[in-house]
Nucleic acid binder design. Structure first.
Lengths: 124, 124
DNA sequence: GTGGGTACGCACCAAAAAGTGCGTACCCAC
DNA sequence: GTGGGTACGCACTTTTTGGTGCGTACCCAC
């Protein structure tokens, strides 16, 4: 993650959002404004908790997201994009759009998952 | 690189351009239209030849770039974005712009490198 | 009082990614 | 004829990344 010299602006961008899952996390935060740890985890079923924590810490350090402790007791935190983070919207939007387009032309299916656990009885 | 189910369009995009250096390579191809292997290598001083070859093969298979053998003898090939690849321009532009912005606000320096070896005498 | 949810940190191990060095085949300049 | 540039492929090792499982501290529902 520590690159010394940059020879292209894109390298700078990648140092911030180049790690695995990072743009996905940010895209969800852009879509949902504020999300709790567990919500992000459910929105991205394939990410492990360790990964998610790690990425969130990195983004926090980079000043891209903001962590707020909502409740201390049974820990509850909220993440949201900072102003700097919102500056990434064009990147995230473009990635979102291209992915949708690509899925269509390649016949891929995208199955979104709700951020909150199903409230009703077991859906199986 | 093989992900089965997608839960967000951004995941689809990342499966194509998520590997290390990939967006940098594409950004240079977008800027320069057509580039030879050695030119890309010089434009990205920190990439190894193995890496570059690998990424180029992946992008070729994904239909994002196009490889043309210009001369067989002392092998010379040219890479360029396909139509599908040019569809990534919004993403690449956004990454480029954000990186420049970020470099400015963070006081980072970007030192571009020429694609071709210095032809004249030492420029220093 | 027992289990589940919340949001982690830590340690250990497996897997994937990347670096290094060597070989190729040909051309050209010196 | 010797060395350098062109664009790689291959094998081997190292580094990085990520997964798994365990522990925490507290609350709430049953």
């Amino acid at each position: 993650m520590t690159e010394r010299a940059y020879h292209c602006p894109v390298e700078v961008t990648l140092e911030v959002i180049g790690a695995r899952w990072t743009p996905v996390i940010l895209a969800h935060l852009k879509e949902n404004d504020r999300l709790r740890f567990g919500q992000i985890r459910r929105l991205i079923p394939d990410i492990s908790e360790k990964m998610l924590t790690q990425r969130l810490r990195e983004l926090e350090r980079a000043g891209i997201i903001d962590r707020t402790l909502v409740r201390a007791a049974p820990a509850q935190v909220e993440y949201r994009l900072t102003t700097a983070g919102r500056g990434l919207s064009p990147v995230l939007n473009a990635m979102w759009d291209w992915g949708r387009q690509r899925a269509t032309t390649m016949g891929l299916t995208i199955t979104p998952v709700p951020a909150d656990p199903r409230p009703g009885p077991a859906t199986e």
